[in-house]
């Protein structure tokens, strides 16, 4: 069974329908790259998955469990929160918490959650030790152990984004989404972030990456989704999408992407 199923997803802002019926599914461990021109609805799709926007219509299930059902769109805050935890989101602009150190950024949500769950039957100290150890491990994974106690404002964009990735991983989301994770970075810093994302693939993370980095999409993604005007215009393996695009829109999009590189 597919890990994620999205059926007939629609989202309107006022009169404008930004998502006009999105259908796709993905398996555990799969990496999907979403490409498409500006305004095609890529960000909106990720925001709907993460319940930052409430879709107008459609269905989302994760591991067979309904995360969103257009027929019962109103949800309690608690349900929304539980559902959000199935997804993680890495923002284009990092959105780290400036008043917390790197390690605190990673542990904050875990600690708040532990407290709510009565420290999972452990003492507060034991539970926080565990959380700290996990945060250290994540920090090592993104290669920033030495920046443990630094504040985000003192880090480069690339480093901030790597912290943001560690923070998103902390709560162990089933599916990690990235919204143009390197768009706000200087070109020489994109590599370090893309390498981290690639390393997550080797750890069997399930990821949806919205990106304008065509090389990255081609070499890292298992599947490409090309969005245009609020629908999935074309999808397939990187070889098919980049090597033998079918729709005219995709051909034009790729030609243009080629030009800018």
């Amino acid at each position: 069974m597919a890990l994620l199923e999205v059926r007939g997803l629609r989202k309107s802002f006022g009169n404008i329908e930004v998502l006009q019926g999105i259908d796709f599914s993905m398996e555990r461990g799969e990496v999907i790259a979403v490409i498409g021109s500006s305004g095609s609805g890529k960000t909106t799709l990720l925001r709907c998955l993460n319940s930052l926007e409430i879709p107008t219509e459609g269905n989302i299930t994760v591991g067979g469990e309904t995360v969103f059902d257009g027929d019962v769109p109103k949800r309690s805050e608690k349900e929304l929160r539980d559902r959000r935890l199935k997804f993680g989101l890495v923002f284009q602009s990092f959105n780290l918490f400036p008043q917390y150190s790197v390690i605190e950024n990673i542990t904050l949500a875990m600690k708040l959650r532990a407290k709510e769950q009565n420290y999972y039957g452990m003492t507060k100290h034991e539970s926080f030790e565990k959380i700290n150890a996990r945060a250290e491990e994540l920090l090592a994974r993104v290669g920033l152990t030495d920046k443990r106690d630094a504040y985000p404002g003192t880090l480069s964009g690339g480093q901030q984004q790597r912290v943001a990735i560690a923070r998103a991983l902390a709560l162990d989301p089933e599916i990690l989404c990235f919204d143009e994770p390197t768009s706000a970075l200087d070109p020489e810093l994109t590599g370090e972030v893309l390498r981290v994302i690639k390393s997550l693939k080797d750890k069997d993370s399930t990821m949806i990456v919205v990106t304008h980095e065509m090389d990255f999409a081609r070499h890292v993604a298992d599947r490409i989704i090309y969005m245009a005007d609020g629908v999935i215009e074309e999808e397939g393996s990187p070889e098919d999408v980049f090597g033998a695009p079918k729709s005219d829109k995709l051909k034009a999009f790729l030609a243009k992407a080629e030009e800018t590189i």
């Binding site: 993460n50 319940s51 930052l52 805050e77 929160r81 539980d82 959000r84 935890l85 997804f87 993680g88 989101l89 923002f91 959105n95 780290l96 918490f97 904050l108 949500a109 708040l112 959650r113 923070r167 998103a168 902390a170 709560l171």
Partner: peptide, 10 residues
């Protein structure tokens, strides 16, 4: 939004 996607309450 960063807080929300980390499952924090309002």
């Amino acid at each position: 939004e960063a807080g929300q996607v980390l499952g924090m309450t309002r």
